[in-house]
């Protein structure tokens, strides 16, 4: 049963990512990006990554996607219901991306990955992540907070009317 659900979500993620890449309407693209993010969060749950799944929903769906929709709405005439977008270099891009994908698949399938003998499940990752974040990775955590402060100030400065 969960095998079936996994493959349904797998196909859903791929199809919605294809709509993001190929749709002529920018609004359709951004809303199928929503489906991609939620589907990837479900994939994280299949990988026993509970904390990452919740973070994905909160930050990607709740934050980044809303930012993207704001970006679209602020840079288009909303009176036009259909916000078109054009693509260029489609054939060349298809060739390059197809080559990259074939190389990736050949590499993935041709490799014998050092997979653990029996696949173990994590029971809960939140405690381990918290211990590591405030232990071994404390400097990275603090640097990340400085980076976020810089991004906040930078974005607020850049978005002002008079630069």
């Amino acid at each position: 049963m969960s095998e079936v659900i996994f493959w349904v979500i797998w196909v859903l993620v791929v199809i919605s990512a294809m709509i993001v890449a190929y749709s002529k309407n920018l609004i359709y693209s951004v809303f199928s990006l929503l489906a991609t993010f939620v589907g990837v969060a479900a994939i994280y749950i299949f990988l026993n990554a509970d904390f990452i799944a919740v973070t994905q929903i909160v930050i990607y769906v709740g934050g980044i996607l809303v930012l993207l929709i704001f970006g679209i709405m602020l840079t288009n005439r909303i009176a036009v219901a259909k916000i078109n977008q054009s693509s260029f270099q489609t054939s060349l891009g298809m060739v390059v991306v197809g080559a990259v994908f074939v190389i990736l698949v050949i590499t993935i399938l041709g490799q014998s990955w050092p997979v653990l003998a029996e696949s173990m499940d994590f029971d809960s990752t939140v405690g381990k992540i918290g211990t590591l974040l405030f232990g071994d990775y404390l400097i990275l955590f603090e640097v990340a907070s400085i980076l976020l402060l810089g991004a906040l100030i930078g974005a607020a400065t850049l978005a002002r009317k008079e630069l």
Partner: peptide
Amino acid sequence: LILSALLFSLGLYTVITRKNGVAILMGIEL
């Protein structure tokens, strides 16, 4: 890994072929 390769390829395609800045940002997120 195959799912991630597919998402990477579609994101790369979006970045290469789109003209709209927000659409390119969506490709980067993919």
